[in-house]
Computed example of a mutant assay.
Amino acid sequence: MTTIDPTPRTYPFNTPDRLRLDPFYAELRRQEPVSRVRLPYGEDAWLATRYSDVKTVFADPRFSRAAAVGRDEPRARPTAQQTGILTMDPPEHTRLRKLVAKAFTARRVEQLRPRAQRIADDLVRGMHRKGPPLDLVEEFALPLPITVICELLGVPYSDREDFRVWSDAFLSTSKLSAQQVEDYITQMRGYMTGLIEQRRAQPAEDLLSALIQARDEQDKLSETELVDLAVGLLVAGHETTATQIPNFVYVLLTHPSELEWLRNNPDRVPDAVEELMRFVPLGVNAAFPRYALEDVELGGVLIRAGEPVLASLASANRDESVFDDPEGLDLARESNSHIGFGHGPHHCLGAQLARMELQVALGTLLREFPGLRLGGDEQDVVWKSGMLVRGPQYLPLAWD
């Protein structure tokens, strides 16, 4: 067994610095891959930083997400996520996941690609009409995934301003007060409950109607599970993709040689998306701890039954034992087994949808704006703060 420093380190290690991953992760991977950390809230935890250990925490059934319910789980925010599919283990997790998985298969997502492309084309036409400089976030990055998930789920796009505000409650660390978080979650759940009642009265060809049918006719989920699942799909279905689009564009604009390569090789956009998923540390810190159900040796350390473990996806994606030149951006990377979408039972349900939207977004922007550049200095980019994810809140763009 490895001897470690028993004193928990303060975590996250520092405040987000644009899209810079704290170099201390690399030091931990080399010297103390499983270490003790203390977050702003909850009990102390173990932090796994190596690729192999992170995959173990996410996939090994000896580590439980459901065991966090009722515990003071380590977290960066005052409130804990205590309900919904993210707090379940198989077989309950599997039961709910199966209800929606068919809507997010590679085949089904490819059927959505032409519609996503039309949405993107409409958005860039609007950008051309307005002219530079303009904000990529408001003009393109947000409306693209919001429109797609609204149409897929069956949520009125006209209500987007409301649920955009409420969605912050699920990702806020300090941006919102504890009371605001509670109020926004209540409002989001109330909104979705009302929409479910509308769909019960007037079913449509959408995912929400299918879930209601599974609830009412097949008795495959409870009413609370139905509301939680619908809310989770709406929030997750737009928030992270809407953040990654400007993240990816910012990275490309600040790596001009890689941007030029991609412009000359537009057929490699799918590879570029995978590399950007590996390279961009979306999460400010590791979240959603798993609890050991029995004593487990991990990375040379004994994790006792009942102890929580956090696993850093961002650190795993920079593991020197897995990736050549992991700190560098290489859009032509041949082998890319990143875990940017997670791993194991909780692997991102919408990964294929996100991939497609990101491919459409990058391909369209590169094609339509060959002279794309920042619409000002880097200091003009406004970054999110007090959130679980990092990315531009405002990204000014210009073009030739």
Rank of each mutant, 00 (worst) to 15 (best):
R189S: 00
D168C: 00
V235S: 03
A201Q: 13
F170P: 00
N247D: 14
G232H: 13
Q244W: 00
L253S: 09
L233W: 07
L226D: 11
S257H: 14
T240G: 05
S174L: 02
T186R: 15
D219W: 12
L171D: 02
Q180L: 07
T254Y: 12
Q218V: 00
E205V: 08
F248Y: 10
T241R: 09
L253A: 09
W166A: 01
L176N: 10
T254Q: 13
A169S: 10
T173H: 02
I185D: 02
A214Y: 06
R215M: 11
G232T: 15
G194A: 00
H238Q: 11
D183N: 08
L221R: 13
V251G: 04
S177R: 09
K175E: 09
L207Q: 05
D228T: 07
P256M: 07
A214K: 10
F248W: 02
L252I: 07
P256V: 09
W166Y: 11
E239M: 08
T224L: 14
Y184V: 09
D206F: 00
D206G: 10
L195Q: 07
L211F: 10
Q198A: 08
S209H: 08
V181W: 01
L207K: 04
L252R: 07
N247M: 06
R215A: 11
T173L: 06
Q187R: 12
I212F: 09
L171R: 12
I185G: 02
A178K: 13
S257P: 01
F170Y: 15
A236P: 01
D216A: 14
Y191E: 01
D183S: 12
A210G: 12
R200H: 08
D206S: 07
P246S: 11
S209E: 08
V251D: 03
V181K: 10
N247L: 07
L226E: 06
H238R: 06
Y250T: 12
R200E: 12
E223N: 08
A204S: 11
Y191H: 00
T186S: 11
L221T: 10
R199L: 02
L229C: 11
V227W: 02
V235H: 03
L221I: 08
I196A: 12
Q179L: 15
V231G: 04
M192E: 07
L176G: 07
L208I: 15
Y250R: 05
Q180D: 15
R215I: 05
L229V: 12
V165R: 15
P246R: 03
L208G: 13
T240W: 08
L259C: 08
Q179K: 13
V251F: 06
I196R: 00
L234S: 02
S172F: 09
Y250C: 00
V251L: 08
F248I: 01
A201S: 09
S167I: 04
E182G: 11
T173S: 02
E260C: 06
Y184Q: 13
P256F: 13
D183Y: 03
L171S: 12
E217I: 00
E205H: 14
V249F: 12
A178Q: 14
E258A: 15
D183G: 01
A204D: 08
V165Q: 13
E239F: 12
